[in-house]
């Protein structure tokens, strides 16, 4: 809560509203005893763009998995849109997950389906029989700049293009929150920059974006909110931060 209050001065007016994501004293201990997150407090508002930074093994992916309730926290409470997800029943998970669009370092595309079919898949399995599916698919593929690759198969595309397909698939049901876990991890700097531009564009349309990354150049160029995690703890939360603490070589 203190974080949200501290930021209010620099934030646009809608930040006065209830946060769209909030963590209250969240810890995660995996069954093997690994403490992946320790006592995390966090508030992210509708329309925010946040980088989640930290070295490999810091707990970034764990935080993302807790958000979509792929994992449950060991202690603490997590709210999405005012709904507590940490104790949500299994039955309600599909509805929760439709609020998110999510992409990963590996694009998780279906190799036997075309670009358009990959995107349509997300609609087919959540809203079967929906009308105007083709138009919706074409629209998001136009947003990510692949309107001329509709009938290509994933292995006919470059890495950056594949990630764009994954982004289109995550966007097609108009999520409120867009999660990207190391989306540029497998991409060269130029391509990475293109993906980040795309995420900024998505954010510009009003979608909350949370991007976990340890890509220093990107974070330092964009200068948006940075939440730094190290060894499971939030060590820094700045409104217009850089990858490392200003003027130091540490997080």
């Amino acid at each position: 809560m203190s974080v949200a209050v501290a930021e209010r001065s620099a934030a646009p007016p809608q930040h006065a509203l209830r946060p769209v994501i909030s963590f209250h004293g969240v810890s995660k201990v995996y069954p093997n005893g690994t403490e992946a997150l320790r006592d995390v407090d966090l508030a992210i508002h509708q329309g925010d763009f946040c980088f989640l930074v930290g070295p490999s093994g810091a707990g970034k992916s764990t935080l993302v998995r807790l958000l979509i309730r792929d994992e449950a926290p060991s202690t603490g409470r997590i709210f999405i849109d005012g709904q507590e997800v940490s104790r949500m029943s299994h039955r309600k998970l599909p509805k929760l997950r439709r609020k998110f669009g999510i992409v990963f370092q590996d694009y998780k595309l279906l190799t036997r389906r075309t670009v358009a079919q990959n995107v349509a898949f997300a609609l087919q399995v959540t809203r079967p029989g929906q009308r105007h599916m083709r138009e919706k698919v074409e629209e998001v593929l136009w947003i990510v700049g692949l309107e001329d690759k509709l009938d290509k198969f994933p292995d006919e595309l470059s890495g950056g293009e594949q990630q764009r397909v994954a982004i289109a698939r995550a966007l097609v049901h108009r999520p409120r929150i867009f999660l990207a876990d190391e989306p540029t991890g497998n991409l060269d700097p130029d391509t990475s920059w293109g993906i980040v531009q795309l995420l900024l564009q998505i954010n510009h349309r009003g979608t909350t974006v949370l991007m976990a990354t340890h890509n220093r150049e990107v974070v330092d160029l964009v200068r948006r909110r940075v939440i730094a995690i190290d060894n499971g703890r939030v060590v820094r939360d700045e409104a217009e931060g850089s990858y490392l603490r200003e003027g130091t070589a540490t997080l």
């Binding site: 997950r97 399995v125 959540t126 698939r169």
Partner: peptide, 11 residues
Amino acid sequence: TEIEIMKLVGA
């Protein structure tokens, strides 16, 4: 992979 995606998008 398909099942993973289905669960992620909320099937």
